Structures are given as C-alpha cells and as structure tokens.
Measured scan of single mutants.
Amino acid sequence: SEIVVAMYDFQATEAHDLRLERGQEYIILEKNDLHWWRARDKYGSEGYIPSNYVTGKK
C-alpha cells in the first residue's frame, strides 16, 4: 500500500472527507478520482483527501 505525507492541513467539510494534519502519514486506499483519493489515517479513520495536499513518502 502507498504511504503519503500531508504537506498542508485540510479541514474535512463533508462527512466522507478525512482531515489532514501537516506532516502526518496516510495510507492510500483508492485513487479512482484524480483530485480526491480515499485514505486512512493512523487512528483508522477513512475518507477522501485532496490529492494535491499530499506527497509520496521519501
């Protein structure tokens, strides 16, 4: 599975969105859409994140 790191904070506005915290790692579950990826955080929460807010883990 692909691990990404959040470059920016993202506040979830929709129920299906996942909040991003800058510097935290997330697991990508689905990339069915170019701009919104389904991800899981370290607490096990899942939701959609803006793909341009994250970068591949170095």
Rank of each mutant, 00 (worst) to 15 (best):
V4C: 10
Y53C: 12
G44Q: 04
P50Y: 05
I3K: 07
N32L: 12
I49G: 02
I27D: 04
G47F: 05
K31M: 08
G44V: 01
Q11R: 10
E30K: 05
K58V: 14
R38N: 03
V5I: 14
N52D: 12
G23T: 03
Q11V: 15
K58G: 14
D9R: 03
G47D: 00
H35A: 09
T55V: 13
W36K: 09
A6C: 06
L20C: 02
P50Q: 05
K31Y: 05
E21W: 08
I27A: 07
D17F: 15
L20D: 00
M7V: 10
V54F: 04
G23N: 05
N32H: 12
R19H: 11
Y53W: 07
L18R: 01
V5K: 05
Q11A: 13
E46C: 06
A15H: 11
I3S: 06
V4S: 02
W36M: 07
W36V: 06
L20M: 10
E2W: 15
Y43R: 07
W37T: 00
L34W: 09
T55R: 12
Q24F: 09
A39S: 03
Y53V: 05
D9N: 10
W37H: 02
E25M: 10
S51E: 04
Y8S: 07
I49S: 01
Q11F: 14
K42Q: 11
E30C: 11
S1M: 15
G56F: 14
K57M: 11
E21R: 08
Y8C: 15
G44F: 04
R38F: 15
D33P: 03
V54H: 01
R40I: 07
I3Y: 09
E21V: 14
E30Q: 09
Y43S: 08
D9G: 05
I27T: 11
I28P: 00
R40G: 02
Y48E: 02
E21A: 06
L34F: 10
D33N: 13
I28T: 00
K58E: 13
D33Q: 08
H35Y: 14
I3E: 04
K57V: 13
G44Y: 03
A6K: 01
R38M: 11
E14C: 15
S1P: 15
W37N: 00
E30L: 07
Y53F: 13
A39G: 05
K31S: 08
T13D: 08
K42V: 09
E21M: 08
L29R: 01
V4H: 04
S51V: 09
W37A: 01
H35Q: 11
N32F: 11
A15Y: 09
L34N: 13
H35R: 10
T55Q: 11
R22G: 05
S45T: 12
S45M: 14
H35F: 13
A12Q: 08
K57G: 10
L29A: 00
Y53A: 09
D17S: 14
E14L: 12
I3P: 04
F10P: 00
I3Q: 05
G23C: 12
A15M: 12
W36E: 03
H35T: 10
G47M: 00
I49C: 04
G56S: 15
F10T: 03
P50R: 06
R22H: 08
Y43E: 09
A6W: 03
S45C: 15
L34Y: 10
R19Q: 12
Y43L: 08
G56M: 13
F10Q: 03
K58M: 13
K58R: 12
E14W: 10
Y26S: 00
I28A: 00
S45V: 13
D9L: 04
H16A: 10
M7N: 07
E25W: 11
S1C: 15
L18D: 00
G23D: 06
D17C: 15
S45Y: 12
L20E: 00
I27E: 10
Y8F: 12
A39D: 02
L20A: 00
D41K: 02
G47C: 06
D33C: 13
G44E: 03
N52G: 12
L18F: 06
Y48S: 05
I28F: 02
H35V: 11
L20F: 03
K57N: 10
F10M: 05
K58A: 13
N52P: 06
V4W: 10
